[in-house]
Design a protein around this nucleic acid. Structure first.
Length: 316
DNA sequence: TCTCCTCGAGATCT
DNA sequence: CTCGAGGAGA
């Protein structure tokens, strides 16, 4: 399998100059399917300056002597007759490669197109596709993480843009260009400016990187000071079976306990979860557990308990 | 606190 | 493929 080592980077930006690309294929797999149409539209400072498109005749036919199945014909409107007189990849791809040059590429779920093009350019022409790219689907997901679906038609619908003549390359390129513009406007209205949007994404990915124990506040006001949890410092290691760690930490604070991020001299209980999934733990003990065992030997007030014991303490 | 790693869940492309 | 959750180690 091809590793695509020279592949460019996926960027979350709103470029002023770029080339929108789209392809149609015989199926979803770059390994087993072929490109049947390739298209690109170039924009410089927001204005279209040129376009390129061509059908491509696949290298081989199926058992019935067809280039494409009924489903793809139906989807794209491209027929076997059209492909029978189309140029081959060896003729088309050099022109395409020359058209895009080193431009920043834009597409919807553009990894799909990039992977097909990368493999075909390498296989047919020994060319390397190392252009960086912008994925409008990825931008849409980052802009509206609360929304589940982000297909091209979903995005266009959201911005009240008509999606006509879908699934031909040039039409899809135009639509993706419109989607990028709409996403940019949306990002500006939500975050004030493009810079703020990009800054927001950076911060969010960093900020959400780790759950800080101190960030969890009690959701109830009356806490029973007599329960065994009260005033004790809890630390978790591994994944819990019965609930998320965040939920367990919520239980701790709601019973008057205190959460810790790591095992220290102040820690009273280390709750053991599953370490199975973590391959870097070879002897079954996390670094937190090892530290807790050492502190216990030193005579500190720390107990290592199982998940079940923890729940018993909560209920008792 | 920071960076890097692994894993599972979802979703999209034709 | 991307993202979020969670962990390890410095």
């Amino acid at each position: 399998m091809n590793k695509r080592t020279e592949k460019g980077n996926s960027l979350i930006i709103f470029p002023e100059s770029y080339v929108v690309i789209d392809i149609e294929t015989t199926g979803l797999s770059p390994e087993f399917d072929s490109i049947i149409e390739v298209g690109a539209i170039k924009y410089i400072s927001g204005n279209e300056t040129g376009r390129f498109s061509s059908l491509i005749q696949p290298d081989c036919v199926d058992d019935d002597g067809n280039y494409i199945c009924d489903f793809i014909q139906q989807l794209t409107g491209i027929t076997n007759d059209m492909l029978a007189i189309a140029p081959t990849a060896d003729e088309v791809l050099p022109k395409f490669y020359d058209f895009i040059k080193d431009s920043l590429l834009v597409g919807h779920n553009v990894n799909f197109d990039i992977n097909f093009l990368y493999d075909n350019l390498e296989k047919h022409l020994d060319l390397v596709l190392s252009n960086d790219f912008v994925d409008t689907m990825r931008i849409s997901r980052n802009l509206h993480p609360e929304i589940r679906h982000h297909s091209l038609s979903d995005v266009l619908n959201r911005y009240k843009i008509d999606y006509l003549k879908a699934h031909r390359v040039l039409a899809d390129c135009e639509m993706t260009h419109f989607a990028l513009s709409a996403l940019q406007e949306d990002a500006c209205s939500i975050h004030g400016s493009i810079d703020y949007f990009c800054e927001y994404i950076q911060k969010r990915s960093k900020h959400k990187a780790h759950l800080k124990a101190a960030d969890i506040e009690a959701t109830i006001t009356e806490i029973n000071e007599d329960n065994p949890i009260f005033g004790k410092v809890f630390v978790f290691t591994g994944a819990l079976d019965r609930m998320l760690r965040k939920e367990a930490m919520q239980l701790v604070v709601n019973h008057g306990g205190i959460n810790g991020d790591s095992v220290t001299k102040k820690t009273n209980y280390l709750v053991l979860g599953n370490n199975d999934y973590c391959k870097s733990i070879k002897d079954g003990k996390s670094s937190k557990q090892k530290k807790a065992e050492k502190l216990k030997l030193d005579g500190l007030d720390i107990e290592i308990i199982t998940e079940d014991v923890f729940y018993d303490m909560i209920e008792g």
